[in-house]
Amino acid sequence: MDKLITVSPSPHAYGDDTVKKLMYGVVYALVPALVISVYFFGIGALIVTSISIVSCMAFEYLIQKYLMNARPSITDGSALVTGLLLAFNLPTNLPWWIIIIGALVAIGVGKMSFGGLGTNPFNPALVGRVFLFISFPAQMTSWPEPIVSRLQYADATTGATPLGVVKEGLNAGVPVSRLMEQIPGYMELFIGHMHGCLGEISALALIAGGLYMLAKKIITWHIPVSIFLSVFLFTGILWLINPYDNADPLFHLLTGGLVLGAVYMATDYVTSPMVPKGMWIYGTGIGVITVAIRVWGAYPEGVSFAILIMNAFVPLINKYVKPERFGEEVKNG
């Protein structure tokens, strides 16, 4: 034996999952939604997505290399996912410099200031989005007209999201049934024909991507299902009590980036609980807070805030919610 043999503790076999593979799995899952977005919003969608991805990856590289003196790990794809998700949460007519600020906040504040991948308590893309939402409310709440504004970027004609229409109308005392006439039908909403952020419009494409991630075992079903279920039940109860002032549950499920949030943002590994039981608590919390903000809050839309709020509870959930141990309760049959 000329070559030295390796000695290591067991196991000696390894699975082929890597962080890189999982991250690129998320990217593939997001592609259909991006395609639909390009169909409805045209070049605006392309410009915003590329700026967001490039600046997120650039910031990650620069911060790792020059501020943290670490070996840059942008190839692992996590910055790519953050960039893509940040873009998905922005209107397609957003000026380029605002996107770059958003990317800086997402990567710099949301991720790297806590030590990089794996240590950030809040979803970086959402930190970026919420920062922009509060800092640039005007730019962040003007959404281009789908299809019509395909060839326009900053100068696109804009309108309000379905949730915005409902919120404003209800504040003005208009009944829901009248407001529903102003917004597209449910089938249109499902496909994604509406005003909204870049990637949040098409529930169809997002769910397809979500199923892909489930099949590839990138995510588990607990978080999306618990969010959908809690939103459905909560809005359903409100709707049954007072159908005059409350939109129906299906409308709430299809609008305002709920699917994007539930399938892609809330399931972010780093900022979600580790145990199925904890995931139920977390998902239900997100659902309830989302509806509360939508119905009683000042904003028409609450998914991002709800996820960030529940992110803060994750360490607590992880501490107190433990997996079902083998042999803990004697269940003999």
């Binding site: 030295l4 043999i5 390796t6 000695v7 290591s8 503790p9």
Partner: peptide
Amino acid sequence: SKTSIYDGAPSCTIESSLY
């Protein structure tokens, strides 16, 4: 002389208890 390559967790205690 080196007779093998250790490829486990970088901890003396772990390596020592292994071999």
